[in-house]
């Protein structure tokens, strides 16, 4: 080594040995806990949640899952920026974080359909068409389906890196829709959801050159 070790290099050295399966495992824990709790409640076997979710548990879970999805999405986006600006080599964690985000979006959607609207398809359909925040959330989810399906090495080979990268630019509009969705759900301009949207806008600003097709 011809120069003193930079902080980035030190961080890289610490993080390099962490296996990606550990990220999947730890990241999925809250989701596994929620799915397990709902399953036990549905089968009437055990009350895992107790009073921890407050008096409106399905709404609490719905919001919790939505926030987890946004948090993982923001982390995913941050990794590319940390690489470009700070030379942090976290790229091997980007796919696990991105797929975890998608995992939480799917759970969020499932809880909305099952526990909140209880498969009242008439209300579901009219909500998707008539409620802008649900339309926006749903559009973001649809954009992420091809991204999630192609988040593996086989698909990169099949599509070729150029085409693959272009397809994965769908994450930029999708994360923005996710942030707007969260702000619009609230009755007022709420600080917490505005903070999420603010962070997302800053992240996108860092990547503005890549926003172009």
């Amino acid at each position: 080594m011809s120069h003193p070790i930079t902080p980035s290099e030190r961080i890289n050295a610490v993080l390099r040995p962490i296996p990606t399966w550990l990220v999947y495992l730890l990241g999925a824990l809250p989701g596994v806990y929620i799915v397990l709790g709902i399953t036990l409640a549905l089968t009437g076997t055990y009350d895992l949640f107790g009073h921890s979710l407050g008096v409106d548990p399905s709404r609490t879970i719905e919001r919790w899952l939505g926030e987890l999805a946004l948090q993982f999405f923001i982390a995913t986006m941050a990794i590319s920026i940390l690489r470009d600006r700070f030379r942090l080599k976290l790229i091997k964690f980007r796919r696990p974080l991105g797929l975890l985000s998608f995992f939480y979006i799917v759970l969020h959607l499932a809880v909305w359909l099952g526990l909140d609207l209880q498969f009242r398809w008439g209300e579901v359909w009219s909500d998707i068409l008539k409620r802008p925040y649900i339309t926006i959330g749903m559009a973001g989810f649809l954009m992420l389906i091809p991204v999630a399906i192609t988040s593996n090495n086989a698909m990169i080979r099949k599509l070729g890196p150029m085409k693959w990268q272009k397809l994965h630019k769908l994450t930029y509009p999708a994360i923005l829709l996710g942030g707007v969705h969260y702000v619009m759900v609230q009755k007022i301009w709420e600080v917490e959801s505005l903070t999420y949207l603010g962070v997302i806008v800053v992240l996108l600003a860092f990547r503005w050159k890549r926003l172009l097709p």
């Binding site: 709902i38 409106d56 548990p57 209300e123 909500d127």
Partner: peptide, 14 residues
Amino acid sequence: RWSQASERRVGGGL
């Protein structure tokens, strides 16, 4: 932004 056709009675659990 949302339907008023139905409601969730608080306290009914998950």
